[in-house]
Write a protein that binds this DNA or RNA. Structure first.
Lengths: 164, 164
DNA sequence: TATGAAAGGTTGAACCC
DNA sequence: GGGTTCAACCTTTCATA
C-alpha cells in the first residue's frame, strides 16, 4: 500500500508503457533515456513486483466486435457486501469493468457490453439476482484515455529533440 | 464502423491478449488453438488494422505511485461542444480517462488522479474553465476489470484439458 | 545497482500452398 | 485464407564492476 519512491526513469517507463506497451521495447526506452536496456528491464521487473504495473492489456473496440451497446450501470450494494458483490459482478457475461465508489447511493458502477437489448436485460437480471439494486443505466457514446503524465514534469526524452 | 466477422480464433486472440498482452506470445496462442504462430500473427495484424485492437497499455496502480486520490468527476457539457470538450479534458494534468454519455445531464464522466486535494481543486478549476459544469465528484474505492469472454461460448483451448 | 554478453525465443516480411 | 522460412530483434539469465 505504501507509495514507492519513483525516479524520473521509472516515471518515463510507466508513461511509455501506458502509451504503447506492445511496440515499446526496453531498448526503445533505454535509448530515449540514455541508459542501458538491461537497466530498463530491471526497473520494469521492480515496478511489476511492487505492484505499480499490474498487467498489460489490449484496448478493444467492442462496437466493432459487434457489441453495439456499451453501457454503464449504476448500482447500489449494501456496504458490508459491496466488495464481494463487486467481484462477483465480473462473472456476469458482458460485464467488463466494475468500480466501487466510496460514498453515495450509487456505490458500484458497472460497465457492460451487449449485442442487443436482450443481452442488457439479462445482465440486469443477473446483477439483480446477485443482490445489486440497479439505479440507472446509461449508454456510453465514446471514450478517450490518456497515458498518465506526471503533473507539470517534463517527460521529454533525454537525447532526442521533442519536436515531431 | 461496420462490425467485422470474427471466428473462434479471433475471439480467443482478443481474449488472451486482454488477459495478458505482454507475456502472451503468438506461439502461446498458436499452441493453445492448434494453428501456426504466423497465422496468429496475421490475425493480430488484421485485428489491429480493422481497429478492433486499438492498442496495448499497462494497467497502473496510481495509489502506489503516490496518487492517493482517485476520483470520478461527473460533468455537464453543452451537447454541441461535448465531443470537443471531452477531448480537451484529457489535456488537463491528472485526467486519465474521459467518457461521453449519450443522454442525461451528467453527460461527461472524467476519471482523474491526484496527490492531494490541491491537485483535485486545480483539476476542477481547469475543467470549469474549459467549459464544463461540474455536478459531482466521488472517490473511487477500488476497481476490477475482466478480459472479455464471448457470451456463453466456451473459449477453452483446443488441445489442452481445461483443468488447472 | 547498472551494465554487457551468450543463448533462446519472438517478430515481421516475403514467399509458397 | 493458412503455412514455412529466415534475418532482425527482443528477452532471459548470468557474470561483472
Amino acid at each position: 500500500m505504501a507509495a514507492v519512491d519513483l525516479d524520473d526513469l521509472d516515471r518515463y517507463i510507466v508513461y511509455a508503457l501506458q502509451k504503447d506497451a506492445r511496440h515499446t521495447s526496453s531498448s526503445d526506452i533505454a535509448e530515449a533515456k540514455g541508459v542501458s536496456a538491461s537497466t530498463v528491464r530491471n526497473r520494469i521487473s521492480k515496478l511489476e513486483s511492487a505492484g505499480i504495473i499490474r498487467g498489460t492489456h489490449v484496448d478493444v473496440d467492442y462496437e466493432k466486435m459487434g457489441f453495439q451497446l456499451y453501457t454503464i450501470i449504476f448500482c447500489t450494494a449494501p456496504i458490508p457486501k459491496r466488495e464481494r458483490l463487486a467481484e462477483r459482478a465480473l462473472e456476469v457475461d458482458g460485464v467488463i469493468f466494475v468500480r466501487e465508489i466510496m460514498t453515495g447511493e450509487e456505490n458500484v458502477h458497472i460497465t457492460a457490453v451487449g449485442r442487443d437489448s436482450d443481452d442488457l436485460s439479462r445482465i440486469g437480471r443477473e446483477l439483480s439476482s446477485l443482490g445489486f439494486e440497479i439505479v440507472e443505466e446509461e449508454i456510453i457514446r465514446n471514450e478517450y484515455s490518456n497515458p498518465y503524465s506526471e503533473f507539470g514534469t517534463c517527460l521529454s526524452d533525454d537525447d532526442e529533440t521533442p519536436e515531431r
